[in-house]
Nucleic acid binder design. Structure first.
Lengths: 393, 393
DNA sequence: ATCCAGATTGGAATCGTTTCCAAAATTGAG
DNA sequence: CTCAATTTTGGAAACGATTCCAATCTGGAT
C-alpha cells in the first residue's frame, strides 16, 4: 500500500536510506551531519515535496510558538496601530500570531472561553477589552500566560496610560488657551447590562476633564457633556446639538481622534470656523490626526502593542515581569485645531489676556491652514505632565 | 513521581476512574456517555484544571482548522477593511487565523517561505501582494491551498477588481464634469529590482486613466503624472508641484483615498479651494472618505476579504472554486470633492457648458461643506460601468 | 595494525490527543 | 430468568515530528 497522503519524515528517511533522526537533524540546524548526507536528504525532501508538520513538531518539542491577541473593533485606527506594534515584535521573536477580533460582548466571551478552555496559544495579549472577574479566573485556572494592553486587570502585567491624566491634559490645554466653556464628547456604553467594549477609556477621560475643570474652580453644566456610541457620525450629531445651544462651547474635547473628526465635520457644517470659533482637541494621535491638523493628546499606540508583546515574550521565557503596571507617557500635541477663543464673555477670561484677532484670520483659511503638513511637534507644556512613569498598581 | 506539568487526558481518566476514550468523548460532543459519567468526568476536569492540547488534538484528528492570511502594510485602512472581512468569515467558520503582516519584500519572502515550507496552516489567503513565479511554485509543490485577494495569480482562485476599469471610471467622471486638465497622483515602486508591494494596483489605475483620456482624444502631458512612494505626505508634495505649474490641473485623480487626502491637504495649503479650483477623486472608498466628502471609486474592500475567506473555506472542503477569477463591482461615489471646473481655458470645454459659479461659492466654505455627513450615495452613471461581473481569467 | 576521541548515525521512546474495535454493561421482550 | 439488541466503556494504535542514547564510523596518533 503506497502513501497517497503527504509524505512523512519516515518516508523521507526510507527513500534516502537514513534514519528519521538524521532527517530531523538536516531539517533543524543540521549540526553533526555529514555534508554528503545532508545533500542527499535535502534532495529527497525536494523530490518528495516533503513538508514537515508544524503540528507534530510542536507537539513533540512541547512548544508551539504561537500567541493569540484579542482586539476589539479591528477597523479602528488606534486598534490597528496597537496590533501592528505587537505583530512586529512577535514576528521578530518568531512567534505566529492568531488574531481574534471582537465587536460584541458575545464574541468576546466566545473567544476568551476558547482561548482559556483549550491550550491553543502559548500566551494571550488582550487589548482594550475589559476583563470581568470570571474571565481573569479562567486565565488563572488554566494557567494561561496573559498580558493586557490598555486594560487594567488585577495581577496581570499591563501596559496602560493614565486616561484621567490625559483628560486633564487636554482640558488644561484648552483652559490655558483661555477657554471657559469647554464641552466633552465621548462614548457611552450602548447597553447597560453588559459593559460595552472599550467604554472605560472614554469614561476615565471624562473624569479627568471634570477634575481639571474642578481644579480651576469650574464645573461643566450637564448640557456640555455629550455621550453616544463610538463613531464620527454620532460625534458629529452630538456636536451639532452642542453648537446649537444658546451659549455654545468655545472648545470641545473629544474622547478620541475618531470622534474629534466628527466634531470637526459638524463644526464645518454649522459654520463654526476652527479654531476661530471652536477649538477641538482629540485623543490618541492616530496617523490622520496630523493630516487634518488636529490638536490631540498623544499616546504611543504602536509602542503599547509592542510593549505588550515584549512582556508576553518575557513571561513565556519564565521571566518575572516588573513592574506589573507599565505606564506609557502622554503628551499634548498642539496643531491648528485649537487656539485662543475669539471673544471671551464678560468676566470669563480672568487670568488670560484677550486673544488677538490673528487666530480668527488664520482660521478663516480653514482647518488646513498654515500648519498643514508641517509635522506638528509643538508640545504644550502642561502643568501636569504624564511623563514616562513606571509605577506598580 | 507526580506530574508537575499540566495534567493530560490520561491524568483525568485515571482520577475519574475511566478510560481516556471516555474523557475524550465527554470533551467532544459527548455522544453515548452516561450522564452520571459525564458529570463525574467534568468535575475532575474542573478540579484538575485540565485543558486539552489543541496541538495534540489537531495532530490526531488530522486537521488544525487554522488558516494564515498575508497582508501588506497592515496599518493602511484598505488593508484593514479586507482583513476584517476575512476574519469575520473565518471566525464564523470556526477557523483560527494567523495574520502575517509584511512591509518589505524580505518579510514577504520570509513569510511565504515559512508558510509553504512547513505545514503551518490548512490554507493561505494572500492579500494585495504580488506573487512571483517561484512563490506560486512553492505553493503548488507544497500542495498548500491558496486563494488571493486583490492579486492576479495564474491558476489560483482570486477575488479582484478591474483596476484599469476603475481608473477609467474616475477619469470619465472628471471628463464628464468638464475637466480637461486632469492629473494623476499615484505609487511608484521604491526599488526597481524587487517589485514593491502593492504597486500593481496604482499602475493599472494609471493605465485606465491614460486609456480613458485617449478615448476622449487626449493625452496627458508627462508633467501631469506624478508618482512617488505611497502615503499622504508624499502625495501632498507631488500635488504641490502640480499646483505650482504655470497651467495647473483642474482635477486630480489619486490612486488611493489615502493619497487623495494628501492631495486635499496640499490643495488647502496652496489655496486651491475644492472643488472650486480643483476637483479630487480618490480610489477605494475607505471609511473616512465619506467623512471628508471625498469623491472616489468605491470597491468593496471588506467584501473582498470575506469572499477570499469563503473561497478558501470551499477549497478546504474539497470543493472546486468557480470561477477562478471573481471580479467585484466598482462604482463612482460622487461627493463634494469633485465638481465642474470653475473657468475653462479657451477652447478646452468644447462639449460641456461653462459651469456656474455656485461651485466656487460653496467651495469657499471648505471641504466639509453642505455635503458633510450626508452619507453620499450619488452614483455617477459612467458610460463604462464595471458591474458585478464574474468572469474567468 | 591498534586504539581512541570525536563525529555521525539509527531508531525507540515520547508528546497528548482521537479513533476504532472489542468487551462489558444495560435494557427490554419473551 | 434468558437472550439478543443496544448503549457504554476501556485502551491500543495511530498522528508525525523531536530527542536521546547507544552503536557505528572516521581519522589520526602510537
Amino acid at each position: 500500500m503506497r502513501t497517497p497522503d503527504r509524505p512523512t519524515i519516515a518516508d523521507v528517511a526510507a527513500v534516502a536510506g537514513v534514519g528519521v533522526g538524521t532527517v530531523s537533524r538536516v531539517l533543524n540546524g543540521g549540526v553533526n551531519v555529514r555534508e554528503s548526507t545532508r545533500q542527499n536528504v535535502l534532495e529527497v525532501i525536494e523530490r518528495l515535496g516533503y513538508r514537515p508538520s508544524h503540528l507534530a513538531a510542536a507537539l513533540s518539542r512541547g512548544t508551539q510558538r504561537t500567541v493569540a491577541i484579542l482586539v476589539p473593533h479591528l477597523t479602528r485606527p488606534s486598534t490597528v496601530a496597537r496590533l501592528a506594534g505587537a505583530l512586529a515584535v512577535l514576528d521578530e521573536q518568531r512567534y505566529d500570531t492568531i488574531v481574534c477580533n471582537v465587536d460584541t460582548p458575545e464574541q468576546r466571551d466566545h473567544h476568551l472561553a476558547a482561548l482559556t478552555a483549550r491550550h491553543r496559544a502559548d500566551g494571550v495579549i488582550v487589548v482594550s477589552v475589559q476583563l470581568a472577574r470570571q474571565h481573569l479566573a479562567a486565565f488563572r485556572r488554566g494557567a494561561v500566560p496573559l498580558v493586557t494592553v490598555d486594560v487594567l486587570a488585577a495581577g496581570v502585567p499591563q501596559t496602560v496610560i493614565d486616561d484621567v491624566a490625559g483628560g486633564r491634559l487636554a482640558t488644561a490645554h484648552l483652559l490655558g488657551l483661555g477657554h471657559r466653556r469647554i464641552a466633552f464628547v465621548g462614548d457611552i456604553a450602548a447597553r447597560r447590562t453588559t459593559c460595552e467594549l472599550g467604554f472605560a477609556s472614554s469614561r476615565r477621560r471624562l473624569v479627568g476633564y471634570r477634575r481639571e475643570l474642578a481644579a480651576a474652580g469650574m464645573a461643566p453644566g450637564p448640557e456640555l457633556v455629550r455621550l453616544g456610541p463610538h463613531g464620527p457620525a454620532v460625534a458629529a450629531e452630538l456636536t451639532e446639538r452642542l453648537l446649537r445651544l444658546p451659549d455654545p462651547p468655545t472648545a470641545i474635547f473629544a474622547a478620541s481622534d475618531t470622534q474629534a473628526m466628527g466634531v470637526l465635520s459638524a463644526a464645518e457644517q454649522c459654520g463654526f470656523p476652527v479654531p476661530g470659533r471652536l477649538s477641538v482637541v482629540g485623543f490618541d494621535d492616530i496617523e490622520s490626526a496630523a493630516l487634518i491638523n488636529l490638536s490631540t493628546v498623544r499616546q504611543p499606540l504602536e509602542q503599547s502593542g509592542a510593549e505588550g508583546a515584549r512582556r508576553l515574550c518575557a513571561l513565556l521565557h519564565g521571566a518575572r515581569v516588573r513592574p506589573l503596571r507599565q505606564q506609557l507617557p502622554l503628551r499634548i500635541v498642539q496643531r491648528s485645531s485649537s487656539g485662543r477663543p475669539a471673544a471671551a464673555g464678560p468676566g470669563s477670561a480672568r487670568s488670560h489676556p484677550r486673544p488677538a484677532g490673528a487666530n480668527v484670520r488664520s482660521a478663516e483659511r480653514g482647518r488646513f491652514s498654515s500648519h498643514a503638513f508641517r509635522r506638528a511637534s509643538d508640545i504644550w507644556p502642561g502643568r501636569r505632565h504624564a511623563g514616562p512613569v513606571e509605577g506598580v498598581a
